[in-house]
């Protein structure tokens, strides 16, 4: 066990955070969080609502920059590069660290254009056939190809909620990111659509480093290998999912998992 109880696994971390503090104006939302995210695993952030898990997630690809008055202190690294360094290119960072949101948010464009949006922005396709290939493989990875291949020109907003969320995942995959952040991706979906997304996450594991924020402990137990428990802006405990759920070390974690609060 590492000196810091929060950090600690043996593989090379994809992203590391050290002593991260986040402020919204005067209010401190994240206090001294340090954590490593591995490339091979799915990492779940759990905790009661308002505990800061989503805020912290949005630090990893600097989406907090878009919030007026938000301020981030500390160090976050992607493959050893400081994400908040002045030389870091946000555009490139967000292409490497993709994100899927709580509510499916496809653009009001066709399915094809939704997926092609990222590759087009970043100039990843040299030709039309190249682009077709990228779109097809992204949709296939997201398990949406069979449903979407005959309606590529229809609006993305016309699909069902679960399909929209998989479209958003396909959109993120199309840029070929290294990390995918998922902010409660199933909270707006029904159980069947949720099951499909969970399968999808399982299939994507290993190819991308995946961090998922969830308020659903069962989901964390099902899809993740590592789990971090946040409470009141602090990282209380970070360990293998199995040990968190079977043998939590901190009382707060135990209370939360056994349903005393949350």
């Amino acid at each position: 066990m590492n000196q810091n109880p929060a950090i600690g696994h043996n593989t090379v971390p994809k992203m590391t955070a050290r002593d991260v503090n986040v402020f919204y104006g005067q209010k401190q939302a994240i206090k001294n969080v340090s954590i490593d995210v591995s490339a091979e695993h799915v990492t779940a952030f759990i905790g009661p609502s308002g505990c800061g898990k989503s805020t912290f997630l949005r630090c990893l690809n600097r989406m907090n920059d878009t919030v007026d008055g938000a301020r981030v202190e500390g160090r976050i690294e992607l493959d050893g590069q400081d994400v908040y360094a002045s030389g870091m290119d946000v555009v490139q960072l967000r292409a490497r660290v993709g994100m899927v949101f709580q509510k499916p948010n496809p653009f009001p464009k066709s399915i094809y254009e939704n997926v092609a949006y990222g590759p087009r922005l970043h100039g990843l396709a040299r030709s039309k056939t190249d682009m077709d290939e990228i779109v097809e493989s992204a949709l296939k990875r997201a398990g949406l190809w069979d449903e979407a291949k005959d309606r590529l020109n229809e609006s993305g907003t016309a699909m069902s909620g679960g399909q929209q969320q998989r479209l958003c995942i396909a959109r993120a995959i199309a840029v070929d990111p290294e990390v995918i952040l998922m902010d409660e991706p199933c909270s707006a979906l029904d159980p069947i659509a949720t099951a499909r997304i969970e399968e999808l996450i399982d299939e994507l594991r290993g190819r991308y480093a995946i961090v998922i924020v969830t308020h659903n402990m069962q989901q964390a137990a099902r899809v993740s290998q590592k789990t971090a428990f946040f409470h009141l802006g602090t990282l209380v405990e970070y360990d293998d999912t199995s040990s968190i759920f079977t043998n939590p070390k901190a009382t707060r974690t135990k209370d939360y998992i056994t349903g005393r609060y949350g």
């Binding site: 946000v90 994100m99 949101f101 948010n105 949006y117 990222g118 993120a172 840029v175």
Partner: peptide
């Protein structure tokens, strides 16, 4: 969410404005 979605794809603000 539409704006965030575009920015999270690595679009610059102007690309977000123009394309989304």
């Amino acid at each position: 969410a539409m704006r965030d979605g575009s920015l999270a794809m690595g679009a610059t603000p102007s690309e977000t404005v123009k394309k989304v």
